[in-house]
Design a protein around this nucleic acid. Structure first.
Length: 293
DNA sequence: ATTAATGTTCAGAA
DNA sequence: TTTCTGAACATTAA
């Protein structure tokens, strides 16, 4: 379940291999699994990117974006089990795409080398967009602002417009891009905010704490190269596990004592058919007091 | 052997 | 309009 920190780790992992290089060819690997969703179509996508220079590799929410300058952009959404790899894929049978690359400055020197998109469950999507169309997505509010750089007023502007529970709102990529189920729970716990509180009801102090907690959790998770859960699926570009799972405070810790307040137990509830983990004591709906940790 | 659970997004219902 | 539910996918745990 790559979320913002995992996708950022993928971007940083493949950037040295892709940015500034020529994409000789995009190969579709077909081993009889469900075909990878490619828009407008796989042949069209491959035709568009063949021979183009990758000007920039960046991240938007949970998407890896390859920028082909004036030609357009390729957005890769790993969804549940997608990975970008520069070496050592976890298995051969779930390789989906091979990016054949060459150094732009010496086109004939070295042999082309490869970057792969690997996806066990095959839920990932690859989408081609004409130049400028991604900015248009944001302008049309089909995708919210990226979660990594928001301050308190920006968080309030993005999430405060809905009456849904703040945990549910955090998962809505149209409101804010990048936060998924794991980091939503972790961020709200560090901020001391109940996941059940309506997003429109947060106080000024709570928006400040949310902004601070989001920055702290996401940046530290990026530093640790993301979270590899017990199923072991998520890996960085070198097929190595991340380390932030060792810093989780609430996710998948139902029944354990809260290490922050040392009073409550971590509880698991279901919101919008998704697991939410939180401390019933220091994330109580009615906050009696707020303690700095 | 069947079933539930997993996470994300979208279509469609309420 | 806004919010909620179910489906799709592959694999594992129960």
């Amino acid at each position: 379940m790559p979320e913002l920190p995992e996708v950022e780790t993928m971007v940083r992992g493949v950037r040295p291999s892709m940015e500034g290089r020529n994409l000789v060819e995009l190969r579709i690997i077909d081993r009889g699994y469900r075909p990878l969703t490619m828009l407008p179509s796989s042949t069209e996508v491959c035709r568009r990117v063949a021979g183009a220079r990758i000007a920039r590799v960046w991240r938007l929410g949970k998407r890896v974006v390859l920028d082909f300058a004036d030609r357009g952009t390729l957005a890769i959404e790993p969804r549940m089990t997608g990975l970008m790899l520069t070496s050592d894929p976890p298995s051969v049978e779930h390789l989906r795409l091979e990016f054949l690359l060459r150094d732009a400055s010496s086109p004939s020197a070295a042999d082309p080398f490869s970057v792969w998109f690997w996806d066990r469950r095959g839920l990932g999507t690859i989408t081609w967009r004409a130049a400028g169309e991604i900015d248009e997505l944001i302008r049309q509010r089909k995708l919210g602002p990226d979660a990594l750089t928001l301050d308190a007023p920006q968080w309030q502007a993005a999430l405060g417009i809905t009456s849904r529970a703040v945990k549910v709102a955090l998962l809505d990529q149209k409101l804010v891009a990048g936060v998924g189920n794991l980091y939503a729970s972790e961020i709200l716990h560090l901020a001391g905010i109940s996941p059940l509180l309506a997003a429109s009801k947060l106080t000024q102090a709570q928006w400040e704490r949310l902004a601070e907690a989001a920055r702290e959790v996401l940046e530290l998770a990026i530093l640790h190269e993301g979270s590899t859960l017990s199923d072991g699926t998520y890996r960085n570009a070198l097929n190595k596990a991340g380390g932030y799972q060792n810093s989780h405070r609430v996710y998948a810790k139902a029944g354990e004592a809260c290490q922050t307040c040392r009073e409550g137990l971590i509880e698991r509830i279901v919101q919008a058919q998704r697991s939410t983990f939180y401390c019933g004591s220091c994330q109580a709906l009615k906050v009696k007091r707020w303690r700095k940790t």
